[in-house]
Amino acid sequence: TQSIHIEKSDTAADTYGFSLSSVEEDGIRRLYVNSVKETGLASKKGLKAGDEILEINNRAADALNSSMLKDFLSQPSLGLLVRT
């Protein structure tokens, strides 16, 4: 696993530069990185398409609903625990 911390203040970007997809496997919801913008903040921090997001801001990914995800992604900083 890899811990990634991203700050939007690093650039004038209003997004982190990646998209997520939610997949249900064996009754457990998993979050995967769908795509990463080549010039985006997430790419600079090493996030890659296909990575599994285990935690966002110290909250287990399978416990997050879509409104919580939207809220986290609109925050000025983001902490991710990722399995590559």
Score class of each variant (00 low, 15 high):
9 S>I: 00
34 N>W: 05
29 R>P: 07
15 T>G: 15
4 I>C: 00
37 K>R: 11
44 K>G: 09
83 R>H: 07
34 N>R: 13
70 K>A: 13
33 V>F: 06
27 G>K: 07
32 Y>C: 04
2 Q>A: 05
2 Q>T: 13
65 N>Y: 04
56 I>Y: 00
38 E>W: 04
80 L>E: 04
11 T>Q: 10
60 A>R: 14
22 S>R: 10
27 G>N: 12
8 K>L: 13
75 Q>N: 11
19 S>P: 05
71 D>C: 11
15 T>R: 05
5 H>M: 06
51 D>P: 00
84 T>L: 00
52 E>D: 01
45 K>L: 06
65 N>M: 04
73 L>C: 08
65 N>A: 06
41 L>I: 10
52 E>L: 03
5 H>T: 09
36 V>Q: 00
19 S>W: 05
19 S>Y: 04
62 D>C: 11
3 S>Q: 11
27 G>A: 02
40 G>H: 00
3 S>T: 14
5 H>W: 09
60 A>C: 15
26 D>Y: 13
50 G>D: 03
81 L>M: 10
14 D>M: 06
44 K>A: 10
15 T>H: 08
31 L>Q: 00
43 S>C: 12
56 I>R: 01
78 L>W: 03
80 L>I: 03
67 S>F: 13
27 G>E: 02
47 L>I: 12
35 S>A: 12
41 L>T: 05
26 D>S: 11
58 N>P: 07
65 N>S: 12
2 Q>D: 00
45 K>R: 08
65 N>H: 06
72 F>M: 12
25 E>V: 11
78 L>N: 07
16 Y>D: 04
30 R>G: 02
53 I>P: 03
2 Q>H: 15
72 F>V: 11
36 V>A: 03
28 I>F: 11
21 S>V: 10
60 A>P: 15
60 A>E: 14
15 T>V: 07
51 D>G: 01
73 L>R: 05
6 I>H: 02
16 Y>V: 04
19 S>N: 12
29 R>N: 06
62 D>L: 07
1 T>Q: 10
17 G>N: 01
18 F>L: 10
56 I>W: 01
70 K>Q: 12
47 L>A: 03
43 S>W: 15
25 E>Q: 12
38 E>P: 13
26 D>W: 04
47 L>S: 03
24 E>I: 09
19 S>E: 12
66 S>D: 10
48 K>R: 12
14 D>H: 05
70 K>Y: 14
33 V>R: 01
27 G>F: 02
14 D>Y: 03
60 A>S: 12
36 V>W: 04
53 I>F: 01
74 S>W: 07
37 K>G: 09
30 R>M: 02
37 K>S: 14
9 S>H: 01
63 A>I: 12
13 A>G: 14
13 A>R: 12
76 P>C: 06
62 D>W: 10
14 D>T: 10
19 S>L: 05
5 H>V: 09
42 A>S: 04
17 G>S: 02
22 S>F: 15
41 L>Q: 08
82 V>S: 07
44 K>R: 15
70 K>E: 13
57 N>Q: 05
81 L>R: 13
40 G>K: 01
33 V>I: 10
75 Q>E: 14
83 R>L: 01
10 D>V: 05
55 E>F: 06
54 L>N: 02
81 L>T: 13
59 R>E: 13
48 K>S: 08
48 K>H: 08
41 L>K: 08
10 D>L: 06
56 I>S: 03
65 N>R: 06
79 G>Y: 10
81 L>Q: 10
58 N>Q: 11
15 T>P: 06
60 A>G: 10
12 A>D: 14
38 E>L: 08
39 T>F: 13
38 E>M: 07
21 S>H: 13
57 N>D: 09
28 I>K: 13
50 G>N: 04
27 G>S: 04
67 S>T: 15
58 N>E: 09
41 L>M: 05
24 E>Y: 12
12 A>V: 12
5 H>D: 05
54 L>D: 01
72 F>C: 09
27 G>D: 07
35 S>Y: 12
51 D>N: 02
67 S>A: 14
70 K>D: 15
74 S>V: 09
24 E>C: 12
27 G>C: 03
12 A>C: 12
16 Y>R: 01
4 I>H: 01
31 L>K: 00
60 A>V: 08
14 D>C: 07
5 H>G: 03
82 V>A: 06
75 Q>R: 12
63 A>V: 11
48 K>D: 04
41 L>N: 04
79 G>F: 11
21 S>W: 04
40 G>V: 05
15 T>L: 03
67 S>I: 15
80 L>N: 04
52 E>N: 04
68 M>A: 11
18 F>P: 00
22 S>A: 12
67 S>Q: 11
32 Y>S: 03
14 D>W: 01
78 L>F: 01
64 L>M: 08
32 Y>M: 08
63 A>D: 14
84 T>Y: 04
